[in-house]
Design a protein around this nucleic acid. Structure first.
Lengths: 343, 343
DNA sequence: CTGAAAGCGCTTACAG
DNA sequence: CTGAAAGCGCTTACAG
């Protein structure tokens, strides 16, 4: 490997001068600088990361930790869009990105969340949620005061920053959009409690609150279907719910786009087609009309922007050498689509 | 940051003994080992990466370089499935994963492909293709003899290893499957030459060769549509081609799943429905029947396995301290689907 | 403007 | 079985 000494020898100066040129210090004669630069170019020298870290304590790398497996389609989109925003900010700041997949709970008992940080391999961590952040991790984060930003979850810890969408408001607004098109009986499809998905739950709360505020003539909670992720279960749950309801809803708000395809199929089993017989609104913006033959009205989360913001918060904490809880809540815009029609 | 010295002080030994315990050396009294281990646990010590790298020259990190932007849906799947295989092997080998997005050609003139390696931030590189690997990069890779494996492309360099699918064979087999179902006039949809996509081109060659071998009564090249990625262009190209053909094909082989949705729509413009009026076979296995309302016959690439193999080749070269060109060609299995019917 | 010294956290011989 | 010394590649004062 090429070192400062090699460059120094070739240029006929001491390695300290090489260090000065690398770091763009001003106290180097122009002639010397040119000689050194020529030697650097000739040898293809780049300063060893390890040597720099040892001195600066900064490694210009951050870790992205996430429990989302790489191959699960819709969740992959969620993560990739966030990642795209993070990457943009990292690139600007000349910071590298390390990826770690947090194993399923219980799968790998001795998995060490914070190893990269404790090893000083990264300066900070961005955790991309969707599944609740593990309690042990939050505790150690707090104890060690390490720069960390969580996306998509709101840890209570006094030291852990987070970036999230306003799911309650978005749920509320979803009902508002549907209601304004004349629908007076609206159903919600959410997740079973065992998933502990605060995001979908908040959308559900927004759904209920909006219907109360608007004076719906039925009990919102009677029109909530709780189902599972990416599963055929959804289809059956939808069918069963519809059969149990005496008065059928004219619109459905899916708390996540993952439920949309199976909901549509479940409705088809009942002889109902979207949007002719019933309207439908999704959430997330992952269902692409190129692949799904219905242009779904939805609430696309500003994932890219959230990724960027998370990275910015993290960098400000790293470079400021302090850890202070910062939070950001993003509103979710409505995006109209053919699946939502007037009642 | 906690260092070996801190642990040594707490345990009442020298930091060298701590180093021994960390590295599991045998020449440490059991009693001492326990004392040291207790101190390590108490302080939450982990050996600094930088110190280790400086000594061993090994950093237990590899870089994944790819020109695929994070947000492009189908290409995202391609990359993520490969990544999933790589990650699996990395986890087993306790190696970390660094991600780098190679900018569009010309976008960032001073982008330095090999910086992470020259900085000794990674031990080797896996390049995930889909767009041809940049010439400058290949040259520098060869010059520096750095451990590198390319996935999805076959660089000529004597030193760069690669892992790829047998696209010619797969293209040939696609025609074989279609032909065996009685189709005697089959069209191909590929990419315009300007994309330099060797993979799709090889499938095209397999398509042509198969038709020749089977004694097709027409010139295969007359039934090749060349289109662009992810674009509405495809729809128009399909329509135009169909209008120009006097004898219509009874089946179409899409050289990539990206073309499938728009091809289906283009056919619809002509009043043709799949598979009732015309059969269709895709390639890649990205079109999920949950989201696309047609179960497409296709050739799913063994991406996960390719990722694993690439990582294994890379690790063997890194730990062996040699760089030798190794290559692996994966066959692509056929996966039947409703879109391909008997003629 | 340039160089010798010390030290960052670690490991690898070498002594004892 | 344990420790003192040297060195990995770098930067940061300090001297000149």
């Amino acid at each position: 490997m090429v070192t400062q000494k090699d460059v120094a020898n070739l240029a006929g100066v001491s390695f300290i001068t090489v260090s000065r040129v690398i770091n763009g210090e001003s106290n180097v004669k122009e002639e010397t600088r040119l000689k050194v630069q020529a030697a650097i170019d000739q040898l293809g020298y780049a300063p060893s990361f390890a040597g720099q870290v040892l001195n600066s304590g900064r490694c210009n790398t951050i870790a992205i930790l996430t429990p989302i497996p790489f191959y699960q389609s819709l969740r992959t989109f969620y993560m990739m869009r966030i990642l795209s925003g993070i990457e943009e900010v990292c690139r600007k700041n000349k910071v590298d990105l390390m990826m770690g997949i947090v194993p399923e709970a219980g799968t790998e008992p001795d998995y060490d969340y914070l190893r990269p940080y404790r090893q000083k391999k990264v300066d900070g961590i961005i955790y991309i949620g969707l599944r609740q952040i593990p309690r042990e991790m939050i505790e150690e984060l707090g104890k060690r005061k390490l720069p960390c930003v969580v996306i998509g979850d709101r840890p209570k810890s006094k030291l852990v920053s987070w970036v999230d969408t306003n799911n309650f408001e978005a749920g509320y607004n979803a009902v508002k959009e549907i209601w304004s098109r004349g629908h007076r009986r609206i159903a919600f499809i959410g997740l079973k409690d065992e998933f502990f998905n605060a995001n979908v739950m908040d959308r559900e709360k927004g759904f209920e609150k909006a219907l109360e505020d608007f004076g719906a003539k039925y009990k919102p909670s009677d029109y909530i279907i709780k189902t599972a992720f990416d599963s055929e279960e959804t289809r059956q749950d939808v069918k069963a719910a519809f059969l149990s309801w005496k008065k059928k809803p004219t619109a459905i708000f899916c708390g996540a786009d993952s439920f949309v395809p199976e909901t549509v199929k479940g409705l088809k089993l009942l002889g109902l087609s979207v949007p002719k017989d019933i309207s439908l609104v999704g959430f997330d913006g992952f269902i692409n009309s190129t692949y799904f033959n219905l242009n779904v009205a939805t609430f696309p989360q500003p994932l890219n922007e959230m990724g960027r913001r998370a990275a910015e918060i993290l960098f400000s904490q790293i470079s400021g050498n302090f850890v202070k809880k910062e939070t950001a809540v993003f509103p979710v815009p409505f995006c109209a689509g053919d699946s939502l029609q007037n009642a």
